[in-house]
Design a binder for these strands. Structure first.
Length: 360
RNA sequence: CCCGGCGUAGUUCAAUCUGGCAGAACGGCGGACUGUAGAUCCGCAUGUUGGUGGUUCAAAUCCGCCCGCCGGGACCA
């Protein structure tokens, strides 16, 4: 695989923003196996974003020859009051997440890293203090939205530690690339701003699209100054709203019912969660066969090879939402089937969710 | 430890002062309209009023105690 092919693989959808593509190219040119990571707060069940998209993107980078670390940020989850702040439960959810990703195709050679592995390292905390000393309170405050909380929920002083910890994580693991959803970009920008001041390299950032919840667009505001990004974060699929969130191991029945109820206005592509799934999960910018079965009275079966063709037909009302939904249900069903199967065979990993109430 | 505020439907809150059938909005569910969903229209259900004891014909409401959350203060050799 040459550099351009590797570059395309890394930048492939659902990737949405690369900071910067040129830096990524020169990284690939100068380093045989750059190191990347993606961090998560273990909390709640994995869904199409935290499970499927994360696994797809991890696999892309690994296929492109990147050494990949999946980081399970137990302490961050604790600060963010996930799983009731119970580190024991958080750890169990982390083990569950490992199985989700592996079942969805992440190669076994991935490295799992836990934040508890280096929280007793003074270098780690020393770097946090150095990051904080290079940052103003205002700057850190603006980063707090990476925790996915609204202003009213940002009341605890411990939360101010969070962005600096995330920056310190990047250097602790000696990463070249920080990969995450668009909602984490402020942490990576902080690392890119502060790192050089501390004599540390700027990480390349790979940010992927946040899938909308099945309810469609929500205008909440307050997550980003950029209106498009703000809407993307506001509307994202969230485990706290299970009826508009497809979990990585939903039953076929649950999956179909959720898709059936999903917001999907005919002819409207923007803010359409079903179209987002087609674009970012099913096509992902590549050519493939995508055959939609239709009764002959509605035009009979139709095959698309590119998302752009499908998008054009949908926008011109030549493709009805109902027919598209049927296809998306079937595709997603087979995509998540291995994950569902894994937890059918290993139900013990789901026990942690039995007693716990869902936390955001 | 002290002072104050608060605790009511899934959620945000009203009703508390002045005791008299516990309500609204949003959300949810069902139906109509759509070859999906949403929107719209029609209809339905929201509940141990934090717990407990008391006063009263009658308590979400008044009184006692307890629990929890929030804010402030005190303590800090």
């Amino acid at each position: 695989m040459d550099i351009e092919e590797r570059l395309d693989l890394i930048c492939r959808k659902p990737a949405e923003e690369i900071v910067t593509r040129n830096e990524l190219r020169s990284l690939l040119e100068t380093k045989e196996h750059p190191v990347a990571y993606q961090g998560f707060e273990p909390s709640g069940k994995a869904h199409l974003g935290t499970g499927v998209e994360a696994a797809l993107k991890t696999k892309d980078l690994m296929d492109a020859g990147i050494k990949f670390k999946l980081f399970l940020a137990e302490w961050h989850a604790w600060i963010n009051n996930k799983m009731g702040g119970d580190l024991e439960a958080i750890r169990k959810v982390g083990e569950y997440f490992q199985k989700v990703w592996l079942s969805l195709g992440v190669p076994e050679t991935v490295e799992f890293v836990w934040s508890s592995e280096f929280v007793d390292d003074s270098d780690y905390w020393g770097r946090i203090i150095r990051v904080l000393k290079e940052s103003t309170v205002a700057r850190i405050t603006r980063c707090l939205t990476i925790m996915g909380r609204k202003e009213a929920e940002l009341q605890e002083a411990a939360q101010y530690l969070y962005p600096a910890m995330q920056v310190s994580d990047i250097y602790q693991m000696e990463l070249d690339i920080a990969c995450s959803g668009m909602d984490q970009r402020k942490a990576h920008m902080l690392a890119r701003d502060v790192g050089p001041k501390l004599g540390l390299p700027k990480p390349v950032a790979v940010h992927y699209h946040l899938l909308a919840g099945l309810q469609g667009p929500i205008k909440m505001g307050g997550f980003d100054d950029d209106e498009t990004i703000d809407q993307e974060i506001s509307s994202k699929m969230a485990k706290s709203h299970p009826e508009t969130c497809i979990f990585a191991h939903d039953s076929e029945k649950e999956l179909k019912e959720k898709i059936r109820k999903a917001y999907c206005p005919a002819g409207e592509v923007e803010g359409n969660p079903i179209m987002e799934i087609v674009d970012h999960i099913l096509f992902r910018g590549r050519e493939r066969e995508f055959t939609i079965e239709r009764p002959s009275k509605f035009g009979g079966d139709v095959t698309y090879w590119q998302y752009e063709e499908l998008k054009k037909d949908f926008a011109e009302n030549n493709l009805h939402p109902q027919d598209l939904k049927n296809k998306v249900s079937a595709e997603l069903n087979s995509l998540i089937a291995p994950c569902r199967k894994y937890f059918e065979d290993h139900p013990e990993y789901l026990e942690v969710f039995r007693e716990q109430t869902v936390t955001r």
